[in-house]
């Protein structure tokens, strides 16, 4: 029997969706061993959050109230404290920017092995079997790790269903002393990335360009196509990182989430961070030389060909 401790994620007064998916992943693992699912809520409006995460399958909720927002020193300290008192053998957190900002430290302090960004988890007796994506989603890796003393895991958003139903969990407020010496950073505040003149989230048709465009001067071709289609130009991360388009044009996890009628992905491989920002588009078109690119998994229409041949031909069709 192994208990599972899941630490949920929230920001600016709201629990993040992945937190509810985390409950499902945790419940599945607890069921496999006949153990309990413990859920920890650290900081924020803990009472309200405890109420929200009390879904079917949650056995006990522990709240730690030591501030409003995420603070990795508090999270790491709280997770270690809860593991030491509750003795779960599986510690779960979302693979969010905040999840990866503290769970690796917890694993190291507990001397537990760490699996990040899992897309599948199974228990085979005393072995945890995790599925991950390597090489930007082009290879699926199956890893195994002995449960032994315990294993820390972060899970990818969107891979488990959100937990539903009303729970009947106990709620306990936990106080622990965070050593002053452990407090080495201070969160000063949040800022939204500058908006700019164009809001890609408002566009009905997006012509989106990725690494395949190769060079800044080739962007002209994409702009010409957008013009011909009456569309707006957006981009995946590498194009914005290179400074060829401003940050407000970036589609994806760290950029904007868009849901246009038509999304034309040109030279975009479809890394998970990008897909998270555009999978809600009604119709997705992918133009890419690589027929195995992950973008093909969500495309409705695909052209497996060189964008430098296809795009000029497409412009011609609309002139």
């Amino acid at each position: 029997m192994s208990d599972v401790l899941a630490v949920v994620d929230h920001r600016q007064g709201a629990l993040r969706d992945v937190s509810f998916e985390l409950l499902s992943a945790g419940r599945d693992l607890a069921d496999a061993t006949g153990g309990d699912l413990f859920v920890a809520v650290v900081n924020g409006p803990t009472a309200a959050f405890a109420d929200e995460v009390d879904r079917e399958g949650v056995d006990a909720i522990y709240t730690v109230d030591a501030g409003e927002e995420f603070d990795h020193d508090v999270y790491a300290g709280a997770a270690v404290h809860l593991v030491e008192t509750l003795e779960p053998r599986i510690l779960l957190a979302p693979n969010s920017v905040n999840g990866i900002d503290y769970l690796p430290a917890v694993a190291t302090r507990l001397d537990w092995p760490l699996v990040t960004d899992a897309v599948g988890l199974e228990l085979e007796g005393e072995t945890l079997v995790a599925t991950r994506e390597h090489y930007g989603g082009k290879v699926e890796a199956t890893l195994e790790v002995a449960l032994d003393g315990g294993v820390a895991v972060t899970i990818r958003a969107g891979e488990w269903p959100a937990a539903t139903g009303e729970g009947a969990a106990s709620v306990e407020d936990v106080a622990f002393d965070l050593e002053e010496s452990a407090n080495r950073s201070r969160v000063l505040g949040f800022e939204a990335v500058a908006g700019g003149d164009v809001d890609i989230a408002e566009a009905d048709v997006l012509v989106s360009v990725g690494r395949g465009i190769e060079d800044e001067e080739n962007l002209e071709l994409i702009e010409e196509l957008a013009e011909a289609l009456g569309a707006t130009v957006s981009a995946s991360r590498p194009v914005v990182d290179a400074g060829w388009l401003p940050k407000n044009r970036q589609v994806g996890q760290s950029g904007k989430v868009v849901t246009p009628d038509v999304y034309i992905a040109i030279g975009i491989s479809g890394a998970v961070q990008h897909v998270a920002g555009m999978k809600g588009a009604k119709t997705i078109v992918a133009i890419n030389t690589d027929p195995n690119a992950p973008i093909m998994d969500i495309a409705d229409y695909a052209i497996h060909d060189d964008l430098f041949d296809v795009v000029p031909a497409l412009i011609e069709q609309f002139e």
């Binding site: 920017v97 201070r186 000063l188 949040f190 800022e191 939204a192 990335v193 996890q253 760290s254």
Partner: peptide, 14 residues
Amino acid sequence: RELEGGVEERTEVD
């Protein structure tokens, strides 16, 4: 720190 959804966190670290 670059968080999700176009939000950034300002932090100082010793």
